[in-house]
Nucleic acid binder design. Structure first.
Lengths: 220, 220, 220, 220
DNA sequence: AATGAATGAGTCTTCATTCAT
DNA sequence: AATGAATGAAGACTCATTCAT
């Protein structure tokens, strides 16, 4: 995970001017925490393992983030930045086929590059989104409201079939994230995974093709 | 969850002739365990909470299932029975449009009726399927291999477009299960959920329509 | 400390009908906790030491009282029962000299019998009464308001000199509790302590004599 | 607390010629430590909080005082200087009534000005005087022995009633220190405290009046 | 069949102290 | 003279599991 997060440190000395070593350590912690929380969820995650993965002592980790919850919050903040970016790029002025196709591909790339982020997000939501519930109901809803309107407009202009935009978005989310969240199952069934270029390419093609064909106006 | 499971109890008292009260308690435990494991995953689940939800003491629960892992195994066994059933019904002789449509609907119904089962499955797989990895690689793979062949045959006959059958199956799984696994997010964005009939109907229609349109041969 | 306390157990099974073993263990814990909290205050007290003094494992102690704070609360509840009893007996109808004399003696006896209770109370109040602040402002204030009125009535009738009743009460409290709270200093200076009968007798006589002479009307 | 203390620093840098800034910092630390130790006792006190109250980093505080115990020792040394001064002024040649009255007033003033000192002393003694036990048994005992003799002489001359001098001293200590140590309780019961002039005046008058009346020979 | 009692291995967190700069 | 970084020991609390009844 690379996106820096500027949340509080837990020790009272965060005065905005973080040292290089601080930045480095915080980044290493967040990266390690991502994997751990993604795999085991909040309760199941172990601070000690995060510290080990970050190459430091548990005490030192807690010197940077005062508590398990603090780490989790910081990780989620980073996550949302990454996770919601692609949807923002959906352009009302663009060609529906190209826009949707690009969006699908971006999401699959994201799943390939940040599989832990995907799992972490899934985990948090599956537990009822105790930490990011307000984000879902707030800024995410606003964003989705906006984009469903874009889709409705496309349909009104006859550029796509009139499908329920929410379900379309859910379908894209579900399908693309599936490659990260269910990677174990996919590997068991196909012997490969989204992190391998060939498979990613076939996934992108198939998914885009089905959804686009399914959504395009027959006459289009 | 009601399907009884005949896995081992852990204590030596299961002599085959289970009392009615025994059966009832085992069922209540499994039902409670389903929710708990589904929401929190294996590590995060708490025996005490399962016992409380099942209306009995922690000690008594452990009288029925000797350990946390035993409960988890029993729950997973039940889960797989339920979870894999619909795919088995996919009939090579049937009409692709009807078969796929029926399969999608069954999966959505399943998500609506057993949302915890869906989450539990997701959780287990996301953690690397430590418990059911062999099932995935064994009987599930066999089943999927068989059904991908069915789809390929349909394509070979020109009854559907030649899409990669694995990706098609993943898309159906992902999309339908999404309504259970991400219910919190869906409710935050739409104000409703798959357990409500209207929403379920619109989900089924939209999903089936997009996938079927996306998969059907243009000339078909 | 012997007074039983009926506060909650911390484990959720407290159904009112406590077993003998439960009662016994709870009593032993409270007794041990009294000493520990009295000597070291809340922060300084160590659960492990309480458990050791009570002759059980830390885990078992926490089976009875869910947290350090719970123990502390239970101990304080017991304490207040014991501590405030004597003042209640101050009888408006009685002879001031006898009433005050009896009250002083009771308080000195209390300090002799429950020196830890005295220290514990002192400790809590010295820290700002974070736990019993409301009791002080509530029931204790009500009780003291009542008794200051008694003293004022005595003065109005000319049975004692018109002294400020609050200060009189504080003087009695301070002086009598001093024998428990400052026992170490007293022993360093006199070689003995309030728990020894001779010393206790001389303390009672001297204190009572000075206060009574100091308070009685000259003509009386 | 302002009295400077010349106890050892713990680090080897104290070469006798302390900078102004050094002196100032040491004073600020001691002042902050006084409050902290007074409120929470030795174990309960937190170095970090002392540092914060003194407006410096924890590390810097430990640069001045090598360890928690060192700070505590320095604070106690200061304390004893302040705390035992008034008793030394008790003049055998003076008039008992005036001498005792002056002593009582001095002690009450002390409680008003240095409430933390009073609490700190109480705390240390209540824990068994682990740090100042030798002082109590040494110089304090010598001082008290001397002053009890003064009181006995007064009694022998018929200038006061023959009361046990130890108990008289304890009574004065207890009563006057009570206004500092139990300030929270006093405020809960009266709405005011010894730091307010009116209340202090009434305390001084009442306490002095009761003790003097109680101690003076009837004929005197 | 059921439960209260007890435990030990974790798990998070605090805190005095040391180190390097 | 001062501070940020780091640590290890200790402390509170959790939790699956065992024991006795």
């Amino acid at each position: 995970m690379s996106a820096p997060s500027e949340s509080e440190t837990g020790n009272g000395r965060s005065n905005g001017s973080a040292t290089k070593i601080q930045e480095k350590n915080r980044a290493r912690i967040l990266e390690a925490a991502f994997s751990e929380f993604a795999q085991f969820g909040y309760r199941g995650a172990r601070i000690e393992q995060i510290a080990a993965a970050a190459g430091m002592s548990k005490s030192n980790l807690l010197y940077y983030f005062g508590s398990k919850k603090d780490i989790y919050k910081a990780v989620l903040a980073d996550l949302l930045d990454i996770w919601l970016a692609p949807l923002r790029t959906l352009d009302p002025q663009g060609d529906p086929r190209e826009e949707l196709s690009a969006y699908i591909n971006q999401k699959i790339e994201l799943s390939a590059r940040y599989p832990e982020a995907s799992k972490l997000f899934a985990n948090e939501v599956m537990q009822g989104a105790p930490m990011i519930g307000d984000v879902l109901e707030g800024s995410l809803k606003a964003l989705v409201d906006e984009k469903t309107q874009v889709i409705r407009t496309w349909a009104a202009k006859g550029r796509i079939r009139p499908v329920d935009p929410h379900h379309l978005i859910f379908m894209i989310w579900a399908t693309t994230q599936h490659y990260a969240d269910f990677a174990t199952q996919i590997r068991a069934l196909t012997g490969t995974g989204i992190e391998e270029a060939d498979f990613r390419k076939s996934a992108e093609e198939t998914v885009a093709s089905i959804i686009l064909e399914g959504v395009m106006a027959k006459g289009g």
